Simulated assay, not measured.
Amino acid sequence: MLFRQSGIFHTNYANARSLFPLPADRWMIGLLLAFALTAPFTMSTLVLSTQLLPWLVWTAAVLGLNLILGWTGQFHFGYAAIMGIGAYTAVHGVRNGIPWEIAMVLGGVMAAVIGIVFAFAALRVKGLYLALSTLALQFVMDWVISHVPAISGGTQATLQAPDISLLGQAITSDTGLYYVALGWCLIVTVFMLNLRRTGLGRALIAVREKDFAAAVIGVHSLYYKLVAFATSSFIGGISGAILIFTFYRAATPEQFAVNVSIELLAMVIVGGLGSIIGSYFGAAFILLMPGLMNSLIGWLAQLLGISLGIETLAHIPHAVYGALIIIFLLVEPMGLGKMYTNLRNYLLVWPFGYARK
Rank of each mutant, 00 (worst) to 15 (best):
residue 3 F to M: 13
residue 7 G to S: 05
residue 14 A to M: 11
residue 19 L to I: 15
residue 27 W to Q: 14
residue 29 I to Q: 14
residue 33 L to V: 15
residue 33 L to M: 14
residue 34 A to K: 13
residue 36 A to M: 15
residue 40 P to I: 12
residue 41 F to D: 10
residue 42 T to V: 10
residue 47 V to H: 15
residue 51 Q to S: 15
residue 52 L to F: 06
residue 55 W to E: 01
residue 55 W to V: 01
residue 58 W to S: 03
residue 65 L to F: 03
residue 65 L to V: 02
residue 67 L to E: 00
residue 68 I to S: 05
residue 79 Y to V: 07
residue 80 A to D: 03
residue 82 I to R: 10
residue 86 G to N: 14
residue 92 H to E: 12
residue 94 V to D: 14
residue 95 R to Q: 15
residue 98 I to A: 11
residue 105 V to H: 04
residue 122 A to I: 03
residue 123 L to A: 06
residue 126 K to D: 04
residue 130 L to V: 04
residue 132 L to Q: 02
residue 133 S to W: 08
residue 134 T to L: 07
residue 136 A to N: 03
residue 136 A to G: 10
residue 138 Q to N: 05
residue 140 V to P: 07
residue 142 D to F: 05
residue 152 S to M: 08
residue 155 T to Y: 05
residue 160 Q to R: 12
residue 164 I to E: 06
residue 165 S to H: 11
residue 173 S to D: 13
residue 175 T to Y: 08
residue 176 G to F: 10
residue 178 Y to M: 11
residue 183 G to K: 03
residue 184 W to C: 09
residue 188 V to L: 06
residue 190 V to E: 09
residue 204 L to I: 05
residue 205 I to L: 13
residue 206 A to M: 11
residue 207 V to C: 07
residue 213 A to D: 01
residue 213 A to E: 05
residue 214 A to K: 12
residue 214 A to N: 07
residue 221 S to Y: 03
residue 221 S to H: 07
residue 227 V to N: 00
residue 230 A to I: 06
residue 231 T to Q: 00
residue 231 T to Y: 00
residue 240 G to P: 02
residue 246 T to A: 13
residue 249 R to Y: 10
residue 251 A to F: 11
residue 252 T to K: 09
residue 254 E to P: 01
residue 255 Q to N: 11
residue 258 V to P: 01
residue 260 V to P: 00
residue 262 I to A: 03
residue 266 A to R: 01
residue 268 V to H: 02
residue 269 I to P: 00
residue 271 G to Q: 08
residue 277 I to D: 12
residue 280 Y to M: 08
residue 296 L to S: 12
residue 297 I to A: 03
residue 298 G to S: 15
residue 299 W to E: 15
residue 299 W to P: 07
residue 299 W to S: 15
residue 301 A to R: 13
residue 301 A to W: 13
residue 304 L to D: 14
residue 305 G to R: 08
residue 308 L to V: 12
residue 314 A to R: 14
residue 330 L to D: 09
residue 337 G to R: 12
residue 348 L to M: 12
residue 349 V to I: 05
residue 350 W to M: 08
residue 352 F to Y: 05
residue 353 G to V: 04
residue 355 A to S: 04
residue 357 K to V: 07
